[in-house]
Simulated assay, not measured.
Amino acid sequence: MRQNFVRVLGSVAIVALVAGGASACKKDEGTSGGSASKACDLKIGFFGALSGADAGLVTPMKQGADLAVEKYNAANADCKVTVQAFDSQGKADLAGGLATSAVADTKIVGMVGPAFSGESEVALPIFDTASLPSISPSATRPSLSEKGWKVFHRGVGNDFSQGPAIASYIKNVLKAQKAFVIDDQSAYGAGLADEAKKGLGPLVIGTDKVVDNAQEFGAQISKVKTSGATVLFYAGYTEEAAPFLKQLRAAGWTGTFIGGDGINDANMLSVAGQKDVEGTIATCPCGPATAAKGTFVTDFKAKYSVDPGVYADVAFDLANIYLEAIKAGKTTRADIQAFLSTYNKAGSASGVTYKWEANGELDPAQVKVWAFKATAGAWAPDVEIPKA
């Protein structure tokens, strides 16, 4: 997922100091055969929008990662790990500085994130130069795996799976005859719209775009209503999608509003309001976090007093992969990168088997796409969309 395309402007000279990996304090442990040492006070980074209009999508991921580390520390009180957060506010133009700060902290040995595609395009070259492993729980733009970044890994499917699934849902579940497609021109939105349009073919009777931070959509609404479309696919984020939907309903459009994972958050429900958002569809290249395996759902609700949001279970699993590596004595960035290259285990929460291809893409056999429906003020699992 997010933001407008941003060119990376240098800012990586500092990484030469840290490319060799991370250092940490060493703690000796007595063993029957002598002594062994392990690294303590290591950090896992988390990179994404923790404030601003898109925080509703990212906060559950951070909570999932925090929960994993809390449980790990409870079992390893003598050698704890911490989470270091980097709040991008969902803005790609902040990502370069944050990424540079992250790689300069030599105790950070792995990154959960970035959460959005636009910020990933800026941060990942910096991470790659510094050999800082990165696993995104939610960035879905396909081209992220085509840049040759050795440290890049994706914990979910990309838009080559989500886009066709959206088209399938519109055609086979909604059985629409006329669809309108709008995107927000972000790295995420434009790519997802392109993939959905390929699958929809002649059902697309109109397209348009909105700009970042737009709050008035009269021109787009007029085109949608005139077109006669019964379905509008919006490829973008809640910040613009929520007011757009409210204005569509106020103008009398009664069709089905469908978006990708960029609107699958609590803010879309609350800002649009239950009356206007009811029946809206949001897809996700993930399963329902509220149906996660093991004790994840119970533990999450006990800690945060809410059901886990989208991608919370994925971030929990990804943080646990880093923690497993640390527990196994992999305490440098290079060691953890090597650990990821051969990893092949199911996550305790999502049930997904995390196994990566050479370009960092998740094994295609593990990719699933679900549709969620806004129902009585919550996102309710609707159906797993069959693979094409």
Rank of each mutant, 00 (worst) to 15 (best):
A242Y: 02
A242P: 14
A242I: 02
A242F: 12
P243V: 07
P243T: 14
F244I: 01
F244L: 06
K246D: 00
K246G: 05
K246E: 04
K246L: 02
Q247S: 08
Q247K: 11
L248E: 12
L248Q: 04
R249K: 05
R249A: 11
R249Y: 06
R249F: 05
A251L: 00
G252K: 05
G252S: 03
W253E: 05
W253T: 06
T254W: 06
T254I: 03
G255D: 13
T256V: 10
F257T: 02
F257L: 07
F257M: 00
I258E: 08
I258R: 02
I258D: 09
I258V: 11
I258A: 11
I258W: 01
I258F: 04
G259L: 04
G259Y: 01
G259I: 11
G260L: 03
G260C: 08
D261S: 13
D261T: 14
G262C: 08
I263C: 02
I263Q: 03
I263T: 13
I263N: 11
I263E: 07
N264C: 06
D265F: 14
D265M: 15
A266D: 14
A266N: 13
A266S: 15
A266W: 10
N267E: 13
M268Q: 13
M268S: 12
M268P: 12
L269Q: 13
L269R: 11
S270V: 15
S270E: 10
S270M: 11
V271T: 15
A272E: 06
A272G: 08
G273T: 08
G273P: 06
G273E: 13
Q274T: 04
Q274E: 13
Q274D: 15
K275M: 01
K275G: 04
D276F: 05
D276E: 05
V277W: 09
E278F: 01
E278S: 10
E278L: 01
G279Q: 03
G279C: 05
G279D: 07
T280F: 00
T280M: 12
A282W: 07
A282F: 07
T283R: 05
T283M: 05
C284L: 04
